[in-house]
Amino acid sequence: MAEINMLQAINDALSMAMETDDKTILFGEDVGHFGGVFRATSGLQDKYGRDRCFNTPLTEQGIAGFANGLASNGMTAIAEIQFADYIFPAIDQIVNETAKFRYRSGNEFNVGGVTFRTPYGGGIAGGHYHSQSPEAYFTQTAGLKVVVPRNAYQAKGLLLASIRDKNPVIFFEPKRLYRANIGEVPDGDYEIELGKAEVVREGKDITLLAWGAQMEIIEKAADMAAKEGISCEILDLRTLAPWDVETVATSVKKTGRLLINHEAPLTGGFAGEIAATIQEECFLYLESPISRVCGLDTPYPLIHEKEYMPDALKTFEAIKASVTF
């Protein structure tokens, strides 16, 4: 075990994937000798050569199209989109090609070896072009898996599982935790199963559900609620597509309440899909309406970032409102 931060864990996972599979190719804007804007790929070009870790032109659509081409020829393609905000020019390739490749051929050919890595979310004063959380755009696209880790340990295990999965995966990395989250991570090779939520803390009064950077937010809110005598069960969804309905429903049937927290805007956010499904699964068990604590329906603000963020205090107030409904 080693005490490392999330960036180091991601770098370790990428190195391990390249070491164990010589068909693994890593590419993106400035990922080569420079190591990427956050240095997530530092040292990998020196270790594995310029043929396996290299820079691309500044064209996200081209990066995604190139990834599809590599994977369709049997390579394992790891493509970095420098910021999640920049993924939109690549949507045509990802949604209309990556996701549908297997289906249009009856599985005669596929691009299951593609993983798109991209840092998402706010909290770093990045303004409206470097702070968005676009995960929900991709959860409604059949053929894609969507994964978000919450800490260094999860990042390494989930990233290795994503790279080795036989389906295309979009791996959103919470950039405000890149260097802020430090934890014990095994030195060796390990994977965390995709599609499985984790019960992080047991509780009996309300279920709190989040993913990525918002996990630390709901944990802080749960600690505040505990001082009021409210027992919170905390779940990390981890994989948004396909998401673990069974684990969430089991928790809600126990607690009778559900609060979903995510950084993306409220309208069209993935919390709405979760809420709709859980009210179908758990309607007779619910003691109060399902609550959503999310970002605002506005372009991500720079000067008002703190007001925008669904923080622990907003979550704590929503917990109290749900329990006293």
Rank of each mutant, 00 (worst) to 15 (best):
D165A: 00
L144E: 06
Q8G: 00
A249D: 01
G126A: 12
M224E: 02
G157I: 05
F325D: 08
A17W: 00
I124Q: 11
I78F: 03
L296C: 04
T207H: 13
L177Q: 11
C294Q: 10
G203A: 01
E19M: 14
R104E: 04
D165P: 01
R52P: 10
K145N: 03
K47Y: 04
H304Q: 15
E108H: 14
Q93I: 02
A222M: 12
Y190G: 08
N181G: 04
K23L: 05
L259F: 05
F83Q: 07
G229F: 01
M6S: 05
Y178H: 15
H130Q: 11
D22Q: 13
D30K: 05
F116V: 15
V245A: 08
G212P: 04
N151G: 14
T41K: 04
K320G: 07
L208K: 06
G188D: 09
T250S: 15
Q45V: 13
Q279L: 00
E108G: 08
A13G: 06
A9R: 14
E216F: 15
I81P: 13
Y86M: 03
A77S: 15
G123I: 07
E219T: 09
G112K: 08
N181Y: 06
N5I: 08
G121K: 14
D187C: 07
C294I: 08
T315F: 06
F54G: 12
F38N: 09
L158H: 09
Q82L: 02
G65T: 01
R238L: 06
G32R: 07
A318W: 07
L208I: 04
S231T: 05
S231P: 00
R52Q: 01
T41L: 05
S105Q: 02
L177V: 03
E246D: 13
K320P: 11
H128G: 12
F66P: 11
A17V: 04
D51N: 13
D189E: 12
T76S: 09
L237H: 01
F66A: 13
L26C: 05
N68S: 13
R201S: 04
V37D: 01
P242G: 09
K253G: 03
L7A: 14
S42V: 12
P134A: 10
T98V: 15
I218S: 10
R39G: 03
A90H: 05
F88H: 05
P265F: 03
G203Q: 03
K320D: 04
K253E: 09
G188E: 13
G195S: 13
